[in-house]
Design a protein around this nucleic acid. Sequence first.
DNA 1: AACTCGGGGCA
DNA 2: TGCCCAGAGTT
Length: 210
Amino acid sequence: MRKQQREAILALLEETYMGTETALNYSTPFELLVAVIMSAQCTDERVNKITARIFPKYNTPEKMGALSQEQLEEEIRDCGLFRSKAKNLLATCKMLTEEYNSVIPDTVEELMKLPGVGKKTANVVASIVYKVPAIAVDTHVFRVSHRLGLAKGDDPLAVEKELQKAIPKNKWSDAHHWLIWHGRKICKARKPLCSECVLVELCPYKEKNL
DNA sequence: AACTCGGGGCA
DNA sequence: TGCCCAGAGTT
């Protein structure tokens, strides 16, 4: 890919990701954490449907933690892996209330201590909620980066390094957020919505898809 | 580093 | 129907 094209994509991306209304725009850190945990192997639509229904009722670790395993399973039944997610969510709520005074931790290290929260989830929450500079390469970030030609590496760690090199550090958090959102809503694994993509003119991948 | 887990989505 | 997959946890 030409350097100019790459620069243009980065510039447009930077213009775009600031202030984009994203799918991960939840009103509290707790809600974001819950949504991200539920998002694994689950479509955006399903997660949104569930969160819209349950957050008015259970929007704090105390309230959600007061549910039984069966009750929470029933609430999140529509998303994949709901049994283990319910179990992890309850344990996480309990830990948050008992050990963290119901405040979502602001470091990757602390976040990863929560049950069901691994490297990816911890990085997403830290970077989106607390603007910790991080770009954790999940499948969405991996796919979008390759399609846009921002990275060539064939493993997530290589892609992470390429992105970190290409993007100024003070933009990592916003770029991370945007790449995830874009991968979930527009640049989907199957049937990407190229006609709705702000980068379509510059994207090398669109030619294959259109 | 390799394996397991569980359920949605697709051929 | 059977295979794949994302990400966390386990060995």
